[in-house]
Nucleic acid binder design. Structure first.
Length: 606
DNA sequence: CGGACAAGCTGA
DNA sequence: CAGCTTGTCCGG
C-alpha cells in the first residue's frame, strides 16, 4: 500500500505542539471527525459517549463510520477519519451525537485522500461518493461462492495476468467472459459508463449464476461479497475481497465526474487495483491514449475483431445532388425505408428548428433588418424575428425569391423531411419522448441522445458527421469515435447484419477510415503525434481554473518552475505541468482565496 | 455552512 | 449612542 501523503492544503488539524506535561487528559476514547459540510472542510475531535459501550455502538464505531456531531450549536454529519487520537490541549471536547451508518473502509479513505490531492478537491466530496445513499447498519451475510460455468476464454484469462492491461474489444463483443474469468479469482469490481449499462450487465452476470451487487443501490450487499457493478462512483464501493478491477469502455467521458473535483474513474480504478495488488483491466473498442500509456493494447485476432464491428456505409456527399434540404442524400432512401431492416435510427447533433436560412437564389442570409439577427421559419411559411416576434412573409428582402436553403437544419425540420422521403412516420426523440413510442417506432431521429435511449437498431445513420470530426476540441477525434462506438453497440457485430451509415464530405478522415476498416489502431499514431506536438495529455497534465476567485488563485500560484500558466481566456486559466503528480503538488501548495473557484483537473473541453 | 461578534454607518 | 448592516472569524 502506498504511504498516505500529508496534505497540508486540505485538512488542518492544529496538532498540539508536543505538550511538556500531559495534564487533564480527558477520559475515554477520542475520534477525529471530518465534517460533511463542504465549506468547513476540517476535522474536529470528539469523545465517544461512554454509554455507547453497553449497547455495542462503541464497537461498531470505526474509521469510516458516518456520525452526527454537535458543531457550533447545531448538528452536522461527518466521517470518523482517525481513531484513538490525542486531542489538541486546551479544547473542551464534546461528545458524538449519533452513530448514523457504516461508511468507507480505511483503505477507501486513503484512496479518497489520494484522489482529493490528485484532482485538487475536497476529501469530504469523495467520502460522500464512497458512502451509502441510505444509512447501513448491518452487512448481509456473504453470498456462497459460485464457480462460473463454461470454460475460461484464453483472452480473458490473459488480460488478468498483468497489473494493468488495456484490452481492445470491438463493440459487438461481450465482456461477460472477462467478468467470469475475473470472478474465478474472487470479488471483482466492474465500472461502466452509464447506469443503464450497469443494470444490463448486472442482469447478464446474475443470469450467468454469479452473485452481483448493483451500485449505488446495493452498498451493503457490495460490502458482503460477490461481484460489484456500477457507474463511476462504484470505484469507491466497498468490495469484500477485491481480486480484480475492470473498467468497461474506459474511453467514455462519462467516467469523469463533471462536478468538482473532476476525478476520473479510470485513474482511480488503476490506483485502487495497484494498492490492493490486484489486476486492473481497461476495455474499449478504441483504447484511450491514457490507457495505452500502460502498455500496448491486448487484442483479439484481427479477423475476430472485425466480426465485432458492424458493416459501414460511408456516404460521400461531395459529388451528390442534394435532395430537399441538402441534408438527406439519395443513398439514404433504401436505408430509411427499412430495406436493411428496422428500426432505423437517424442522428443529428443539433437542436431546435431551422436557425439559419439563406436565399436559394442570391445566397443572402435571411435576417431581421431591425435587429440584425437570423429569422426563424414558422410552419406556415412565415418568418419570425426572435427578438420582437414580428412576423413577415417568407420572401427574400434583397431579391424577392421565396426559395430558401436551410443552412442549419434542426431535428424537427429534418424529421419532416425524413418522413417525406421515407414515406412513413418518423418519431422525433427528445428527453421526454415516452418509452412506449420508442419501442414501437420503426424510424427515429434525434440528437446523439437517441443513442442512449434506444437499445437495438438495424441501421444507424449519422446525417451529418463532419461537425464531429471538425469540432474545435482537442478530443474531437476521440469523441467522434466514441459516438460511432455507441452507434455500433445498437447494431451488434457483423453477423447481426446491422448497418452504420455516415454522411460526410471527409470520407478520408482517419476516424472514418478506422471505422470503415474496423481498425481503431489507425488512430493511435496520428493522435499520439498530435498530442505530443501540442503538448496535451497524456504527455502533460492540465488544470483549468475559473470562477470569480480564479484571478486571485493565479496570483497566489505565482510562477512555479516547470509549470506553464496560459490565459486568461474567457476568464479561465490553464495550468500545465509535466505530470499529474507534479500538477497536483503545485495546486496543493497554492493558498486558496475566498470566493467561487473551480479547479478542473484534466478538463475534457478546451 | 451558520452563528457570534466587531467594526462601520446612520439618524437625531 | 441605539439600531442596523456588513465583514471576519471560527467551530473540537
Amino acid at each position: 500500500m502506498a504511504g498516505k501523503k500529508a496534505d497540508p492544503g486540505q485538512l488542518s488539524f492544529d496538532l498540539p505542539q508536543e505538550p511538556a506535561v500531559i495534564e487533564e487528559q480527558p477520559e475515554g476514547r477520542v475520534v477525529r471527525v471530518l465534517t460533511d459540510v463542504t465549506a468547513i472542510d476540517r476535522a474536529f475531535d470528539y469523545l465517544v459517549p461512554s454509554t455507547w459501550e453497553a449497547d455495542g455502538r462503541s464497537e461498531a464505531l470505526q474509521i469510516g463510520s458516518s456520525v452526527r456531531i454537535p458543531l457550533a450549536g447545531r448538528r452536522v454529519g461527518g466521517w470518523v477519519i482517525a481513531d484513538n487520537v490525542e486531542p489538541p490541549p486546551g479544547v473542551k471536547l464534546r461528545s458524538l451525537a449519533k452513530l448514523s451508518s457504516r461508511g468507507p473502509s480505511e483503505e477507501i479513505i486513503d484512496l479518497a485522500r489520494w484522489a482529493a490531492h490528485r484532482w485538487a478537491g475536497r476529501l469530504s466530496s469523495l467520502l460522500k461518493t464512497a458512502s451509502p445513499a441510505v444509512n447501513v447498519t448491518r452487512i448481509p451475510p456473504a453470498p456462497a461462492h459460485i464457480e462460473a460455468h463454461g470454460k475460461e476464454a484464453t483472452w480473458a484469462a490473459r488480460a488478468l495476468e498483468q497489473p494493468c492491461t488495456s484490452l481492445r474489444l470491438p463493440p459487438g463483443f461481450s465482456v461477460l467472459p472477462l467478468l467470469k474469468a475475473a470472478a474465478r479469482r474472487g470479488d471483482t469490481l466492474v465500472i461502466v459508463p452509464t447506469l443503464k449499462q450497469a443494470q444490463r450487465l448486472a442482469l447478464e452476470v446474475r443470469q450467468a449464476g454469479l452473485p452481483v451487487a448493483l451500485m449505488p443501490r446495493d452498498w451493503a450487499r457490495a460490502a458482503a461479497g460477490g461481484m460489484v457493478i456500477g457507474t463511476r462512483s462504484a470505484v469507491l464501493a466497498p468490495v469484500a475481497n477485491l481480486a480484480a478491477v475492470v473498467v468497461i469502455d474506459e474511453h467514455d467521458e462519462a467516467h469523469q465526474e463533471e462536478r468538482n473535483p473532476t476525478w476520473h474513474a479510470r485513474e482511480l480504478a488503476i490506483e485502487r487495483a495497484r494498492r490492493a495488488g490486484v489486476p486492473c483491466v481497461l476495455t474499449s473498442p478504441n483504447p484511450s491514449l491514457e490507457a495505452l500509456a500502460w502498455g500496448e493494447a491486448q487484442m483479439l485476432p484481427r479477423a475476430e475483431e472485425r466480426q465485432g464491428w458492424p458493416k459501414v456505409d460511408l456516404i460521400d456527399r461531395r459529388p451528390d445532388d442534394p435532395v430537399r434540404s441538402g441534408l438527406l442524400s439519395e443513398a439514404l432512401v433504401p436505408l430509411i425505408r427499412g430495406e436493411q431492416g428496422d428500426p432505423v435510427v437517424c442522428v443529428l447533433n443539433r437542436k431546435g428548428r431551422s436557425r439559419l436560412l439563406a436565399c436559394a437564389q442570391c445566397g443572402n442570409l435571411i435576417c431581421c433588418e431591425d435587429h440584425q439577427v437570423p429569422l426563424t421559419q414558422d410552419d406556415q411559411e412565415v418568418l419570425i424575428c426572435p427578438i420582437d416576434q414580428v412576423r413577415r412573409p417568407a420572401v427574400c428582402e434583397s431579391c424577392g425569391s421565396v426559395r430558401f436553403k436551410n443552412l442549419r437544419a434542426g431535428v424537427t425540420r429534418v424529421r419532416e423531411e425524413l418522413e417525406a422521403l421515407a414515406r412513413r412516420p418518423v418519431v422525433e426523440v427528445t428527453a421526454d419522448t415516452p418509452e412506449s413510442d420508442l419501442k414501437q417506432a420503426k424510424l427515429l431521429v434525434g440528437t446523439e441522445a437517441v443513442l442512449h435511449r434506444v437499445d437495438r437498431a438495424a441501421c444507424v445513420v449519422f446525417l451529418e458527421f463532419d461537425q464531429e470530426l471538425l469540432a474545435p476540441r482537442t478530443r474531437a477525434s476521440e469523441q467522434a469515435m466514441a459516438l460511432i462506438i455507441r452507434a455500433a453497440r445498437l447494431l451488434g457485430g457483423r453477423q447481426d447484419g446491422g448497418r452504420l451509415a455516415i454522411q460526410t464530405r471527409l470520407p478520408d478522415h482517419e476516424v472514418l477510415q478506422a471505422t470503415l476498416l474496423s481498425d481503431p489502431s489507425r488512430l493511435v499514431e496520428p493522435e499520439t503525434v498530435r498530442r505530443q506536438l501540442l503538448n496535451l495529455p497524456p504527455f502533460s497534465a492540465l488544470a483549468q481554473i475559473s470562477g470569480a476567485a480564479a484571478q486571485a488563485f493565479i496570483t497566489n500560484l505565482g510562477r512555479p518552475e516547470e509549470v506553464d500558466v496560459l490565459g486568461p481566456r474567457d476568464g479561465a486559466w490553464l495550468i500545465r505541468a509535466k505530470t499529474a503528480e507534479k500538477l497536483a503538488d503545485v495546486l496543493a501548495q497554492v493558498e486558496r482565496p475566498p470566493g467561487r473557484l473551480r479547479i478542473e483537473v484534466g478538463p475534457l473541453r478546451s
